[in-house]
């Protein structure tokens, strides 16, 4: 369980995150949604201390993350981000196993775990662990990125627009894979996106951020039924309206 309490981040006069509090239940996936500059990524990065907060604190399973050495904290948290960041001088297998290597797992155990993960992210049998990341397509690379985040069986996952740079078809396939995996592993996760359709698809609850503040948090149904303001209403109505347009088109052509 993740508990964020009165978290703030200031850069000089600029307030990136403003007194934000929320919690994520064990096994729950919370989506943070907002435009660029809304503070969603900054909030995410303060959870694994890639960014240090100006004020407030983050607790994971009742423990203040500020009291854990950053590198130890991060080894227990899966992290996947849009720019993937696979190490080009390592093989696919070495990339997936990096946190296991850092944790000092013996090589045979690492090999087994890598095979298991390649299967989990649906790369096996097509992609061998000996390949270089540069040999893979963008979608395959991000599957490796997800596998790397999952390697040490973390109880918390942080995902920063993980599928944002992929083409729509690839994105759809990865979203489906991800949904299956998170159900299978019962992940506790925070998922950052600016895409409402994706948020509705993957999130148990959605937190909407604007100018560093959390404006509303709730299930998709809550947001649809009682949006807190016009901004939230617009955000949530956009995918609906698009779906209606598509439906209408389909009816036209079928009649």
């Amino acid at each position: 369980m993740i508990e964020i309490q009165n978290l703030s981040k200031r850069y000089g006069d600029l307030i990136a995150v403003d007194d934000l509090s929320l919690h994520v239940e064990a096994g729950e996936l919370l989506v943070l949604l907002g435009g660029s500059g809304s503070g969603k990524t900054t909030t995410l990065k303060m959870v694994n201390r890639l960014i240090e907060p100006t004020a407030g604190r983050v607790m994971i399973d009742g423990q203040d993350v500020g009291g854990i050495a950053p590198y130890e904290l991060r080894r227990g948290i899966g992290y996947v981000f849009q720019r993937v960041g696979l190490f080009p001088h390592m093989t696919v297998g070495e990339n997936i196993a990096i946190s296991l290597t850092l944790l000092g797992w013996p090589p045979p155990r690492i090999r087994d775990r890598v095979a298991e993960l390649l299967e989990l992210v649906e790369l096996s049998p097509g992609v061998s662990a000996d390949r270089r990341p540069s040999d893979l397509s963008g979608g395959q690379q991000q599957r490796v990125g997800v596998a790397r985040g999952l390697a040490a069986a973390p109880h918390v996952m942080l995902l920063d627009e993980p599928f944002g740079a992929l083409d729509p078809l690839t994105r759809d396939r990865l979203q489906q894979s991800f949904l299956r995996i998170r159900k299978q592993l019962e992940l506790t996760a925070i998922f950052v996106t600016h895409d409402m359709a994706e948020a509705l698809l993957v999130g148990d609850r959605i937190g909407i951020m604007r100018d560093g503040k959390l404006i509303q948090i709730g299930t998709p149904r809550d947001l649809l039924r009682s949006p807190a303001d016009d901004y939230v209403r617009q955000l949530i109505e956009t995918p609906m309206r698009q779906a209606q347009v598509v439906d209408a088109l389909l009816e036209d052509t079928s009649s």
Binding site: E72, Y79, V84, G85
Partner: peptide, 21 residues
């Protein structure tokens, strides 16, 4: 690439490991 530096931090490398690996 800064993305790789962030990835190295994100997977839990110490500054020394990040440099060496």
């Amino acid at each position: 690439d800064e993305a790789l530096v962030e990835a190295a931090r994100g997977v839990g490398m110490t500054p020394g490991q990040r440099l060496r690996r």
